[in-house]
Design a protein around this nucleic acid. Structure first.
Length: 261
DNA sequence: AGCCAGGACGGAA
DNA sequence: TTCCGTCATGGC
């Protein structure tokens, strides 16, 4: 059992915030799958207890982004912006996780024109059918495990028309046509363009990948929920300039508040 | 029952 | 460029 100091962290909020679809409640805590890793986590006040080896601790500290002070983001919110204040207060336990790149690509390919419960089931189906067996659980399938399939092979996993997006993107990743390792070193504007070479990845999905895998906090995915909030709360436009460098964090507060608030 | 969901693609205008 | 029909499926 390892312990980490963790303020502004609420696993239940993160699990419900729609950035991670492989966190499930287990007893009083959560079990979290990330790529080919897995950990059990339990929160006690501002201490996060992780069931992992000491040498894996640095990975999970980074995964939960525990070295970042989220209080500074909340403190920087315009005091006159009542809506954003409430949203941030409501979701103050949300952090932007550093998730696996390929897993986020597939997850948000599947997310389009879809709803959160079904996205979760699609991911589970993919892992159980094509993920490597780790003895009692399965890893997220690598591109190579999907690249040789026919384009409609994932429809039994309930991906619907998105099956061909995942299969063709897997081919592009496996062949090196899109270099996932090189992408990790690119600036946000450049990687956003690069990701859109993947079949099925447009601007919004690219922003989700940038934010939830690559931790580009400037990325601000605008989906149907955010669009509705903008129409209702920010008719004159959202003040992106004020929040340069961390607008993506606020996006998650808004998304979660609109979803659950 | 019917509308909507963390959109993107391909073709038309 | 912008606009629009289409794409599977199920949650509510």
């Amino acid at each position: 059992m390892q312990r980490l100091k963790a303020d502004h962290l609420d696993l239940a909020q993160i699990a419900a915030s729609g950035q991670c679809f492989r966190m499930t409640a287990e007893g009083k805590g959560f079990v979290i799958h990330a790529g080919d890793r897995r950990v059990s986590a339990l929160q006690k006040d501002d201490i996060l207890e992780l069931d992992c080896r000491k040498e894996d601790l640095s990975f999970w500290r980074s995964y939960f982004d525990l070295e970042t002070d989220y209080g500074q983001f909340i403190a920087a919110i315009d005091p006159a912006d009542e809506y954003l204040q409430k949203a941030a207060s409501f979701g103050s336990g949300i952090r932007i996780l550093r998730q696996d790149l390929w897993e986020m690509i597939v997850t948000f390919l599947i997310s389009q024109q879809n709803n959160l419960p079904r996205i979760r089931r699609c991911i589970e189906n993919l892992c159980s059918r094509y993920g490597e067996d780790r003895g009692g659980w399965r890893a997220f399938p690598e591109p190579e495990a999907l690249a040789d399939l026919p384009e409609d092979a994932l429809m039994p996993c309930n991906l619907g028309y998105r099956s061909k997006y995942v299969v063709r993107s897997a081919r592009q990743a496996a062949s090196g046509e899109v270099d996932l390792e090189a992408i990790k070193e690119m600036s946000y504007p450049r990687v956003r363009e690069e990701l859109q070479k993947l079949f099925g990845v447009g601007g919004k999905v690219a922003d989700c990948i940038c934010l939830f895998a690559l931790h580009h906090l400037d990325a601000f995915p605008v989906d149907t929920h955010i669009r509705q909030v903008f129409d209702a709360q920010y008719p004159a436009g959202f003040p992106f300039e004020r929040y340069r460098g961390f607008a993506g964090v606020l996006q998650q507060y808004i998304f979660y508040y609109d979803l659950k608030g």
